[in-house]
Nucleic acid binder design. Structure first.
Lengths: 149, 149
DNA sequence: TTACAATTGTTGTATATACAAATGTAGTAA
DNA sequence: TTACTACATTTGTATATACAACAATTGTAA
């Protein structure tokens, strides 16, 4: 549905439409993602952290590294990791060389969960992306990058 | 910055890139918006409700109407409106014809606040949109609409 | 060595959000 | 009337988030 119909407004400058459209579309995508994750009792932020940890490929990550790479910055990665540790999806140990730091690793259980989720997430992403053609996807990505510059 | 650089990953399918890019860009825009609103001690959701109420042009809105039109659906419009009532930015009265319903109106103070915010929000939106040209804005809006279809 | 600043994480507090259950009101059929 | 269903909003509970204050550790300079 067109963004102006969705918000039941008429006459909106294109700039305003664009900003709202991106936010509304992101919400739509996030809701779809959350729905996939729900049966696995994991939030999208928790999922995000797990993927970052897997991306470390064996190397542990500390909190500040995770925070930097989060899709949406949040001020409390500590408690997010707490939840994952509670579920035994990741482990946390004090860094021996610098005891201010905490090394966080994904566990076997965490890796298994991601493996189960991978195809579901992929299907979701592709079902979205297939609504426009490959060339349009590339140009969308480029323009979004420019908007953030 | 390119989305893959931002997330410090390499080799991501375009579909995944697209989904993440939209979410990351929306966060970027929301953060900018929140920063503008902060000095006025109002959250972006509260701002959203106020704009919906102003859009009613004198007619009161009830809770379900507001909820329908919210940029991001949320399950607790009651408490959101509570906050606005506390600040005297909107008023709430029981609908006389149907006492299940609540009529919510924006107050003079609420209108004045929006008038102060209008130019700031407009500047923000335009400073974002001007990074790409007018034709690209139109095509972005079209494609985002298609992604939600 | 001590003092002090910088770094890294954690905790407290207030607010926001998601979801389900509860409340109160209206309409309708026996 | 009573019972039942639908509707509109509120409340309870758990989790998430933003932001500031706090605590522990490290590095550095007097």
């Amino acid at each position: 549905m067109k963004i102006e119909e969705l918000l039941k407004t008429n006459e909106m400058p294109e700039a305003k439409k664009l900003v709202l459209n991106i936010i509304v579309t992101a919400n739509y995508l996030s809701e779809g993602l959350a729905e996939i994750l729900k049966p696995f009792e994991i939030s999208s932020q928790q999922f995000n952290v797990l993927r970052i940890l897997r991306g470390q490929q064996g190397k542990p990550a500390n909190l500040s590294t995770i925070q930097e790479r989060m899709v949406s910055k949040m001020s409390n990665t500590t408690r997010l990791v707490d939840k994952l540790v509670d579920k035994n999806l990741c482990a946390r140990i004090v860094c021996p060389s610098n005891r201010r730091k905490i090394e966080i690793r994904i566990t076997e259980l965490g890796l298994k969960l991601l493996e189960k989720l991978d195809p579901l997430i992929k299907d979701h992403e592709e079902s979205i992306a297939k609504k426009i053609n490959q060339k349009e996807i590339l140009s969308l990505n480029t323009k979004l990058n420019e908007l953030r510059s």
